[in-house]
Write a protein that binds this DNA or RNA. Structure first.
Lengths: 265, 265
DNA sequence: GCAGGTTACG
DNA sequence: CGTAACCTGC
């Protein structure tokens, strides 16, 4: 009844993904969706398509790449589109909103290119600075949800071939260690918490032939939540349907359901 | 019963036009179709889509632009893919086939850019050389069909605003005069012959807003036939349906029906 | 306005 | 593989 359904979805181009996204919104009817890689300038964001579907939208775009947005059935109570951090604000990768007493931080973490590329250092820095931003604004007892395409598969269970992929960007020891350090502040990887053994990916590379059919995927999209939201969580699951539609994104949505009454108690 | 239905269609990209083209083939079931602006290299021609639809295909493509093809329910008896003329063969614009005793010359005549551009001289040359090729191989008593996107609107009836367009490429006095000289050898503009008063276009520019709804078109695609085929002709009409479909070409097909028994007589 | 080709990015 | 961008051509 008062359950609150939140989701994250790297759409890889919001204009190209409108059919898939609208169909999925209609099927799942989440209260809030964090989108990444909208890949459009602010003026090109298809706001009316979402208002017609019953969603308010806030977005932060740029030309060609990156870009994040939050769709919600209720307008957010607060929006932070500039973190006040030169790295977090250097590209359109960070957007936070407050709604229903919950702070939602939506990030599109840099992919990192390769471990010896400056982009990898930038990625680690981006992760640290997002964690620092959260720690400087909240405590682990505040209801905080850091979600989005985090671009880190934290565990061998989270990639299709941990031997072969060990050391590759997205499954590099340095990223995995940092991911755990970030959690240690007081965040929980909600999907893994609720499904300790489940091998479930959120991303399948376009470039690997038949990657979906062969399940050659990665779990890169996450819901990292503070303790109040762990207690309130009812469910967390990956919806693979959008990845099987015509003209899919290379990612598919991750969904969580919270019973927000449990926050007060 | 032994009627033979032939058509010409500038598809403006055969890969982009496959849905529209296949739907139209299914509706009209022509025995032969001349295509122009297939805009693909030979290796990229979607042959199997046509064989599955019951059509044999011969084609002559190049990278990016131009490109012509002939689809037919029966394999052609002869194919001429090189005219042996440096202008006619300089780009993929000329393809002739013999079938049912009829020689069909399919051309994508250069558009000409503007009257002061070298492309305009090239266009006039291409027209003259095609006419010369025909005259050197046939007599006006042979059954010959020169069809395709001829890129000339021969008469004020053939453009949406003859005053405003006078002198523009496609409706320039020099092209119109040449067109008539070419006919004088022994060719008949079959559509105009059968419909002397009809204002019916085959092309509507994408760049003019709502050009189709406002009928701001040109008659640029033709069936130029020798006397035996004039006598055999039963019908010649423009099918505007494909221009009203989603993702249309800027041209629409021109169709002719011939009673080939009449050739013998 | 729409096609195709190219490049950047992942 | 696939998105967006920029380019050419009609």
């Amino acid at each position: 009844m008062t359950d609150w359904k939140a989701a994250t979805f790297n759409v890889n181009g919001i204009r190209a993904r409108l059919p898939v996204l609208l169909e999925w919104l209609d099927a799942q009817r989440p209260h809030l969706v964090c989108l990444q890689e909208i890949k459009c300038q602010d003026k090109d964001f298809p706001e009316s398509a979402f208002s017609e579907a019953g969603y308010r939208a806030v977005w932060k775009g740029q030309k060609s790449f990156n870009g994040v947005a939050v769709l919600s059935t209720e307008p957010p109570d607060q929006v932070v589109s500039e973190a006040g951090d030169e790295i977090l604000d250097s590209e359109a990768r960070f957007l936070a909103v407050k709604t229903r007493g919950v702070w939602v931080i939506n990030t599109y973490v840099p992919q990192g290119r390769s471990p010896d590329d400056p982009a990898f250092a930038y990625k680690l820095d981006f992760l640290k600075r997002t964690a620092r931003w959260i720690a400087s604004h909240f405590t682990p007892e505040d209801p905080v949800l850091w979600t989005g395409d985090i671009n880190v598969a934290p565990d061998p269970l989270d990639v299709f071939d941990p031997q072969r992929l060990d050391g590759k960007v997205g499954f590099h020891p340095e990223e995995r260690k940092l991911f755990q350090e970030i959690l240690s502040w007081g965040l929980t990887d909600l999907f893994r918490h609720l499904h300790p053994e489940e091998k479930q990916f959120t991303f399948w590379d376009y470039r690997l032939p038949r990657s979906v059919q062969r399940n050659l995927g990665w779990r890169l999209d996450h819901m990292l939540v503070t303790r109040p939201l762990v207690r309130a969580a009812r469910d967390c699951f990956v919806d693979t349907a959008p990845r099987t539609r015509p003209k899919p994104s290379d990612h598919t949505p991750l969904v969580a359901v919270f019973h927000l009454e449990d926050l007060a108690g």
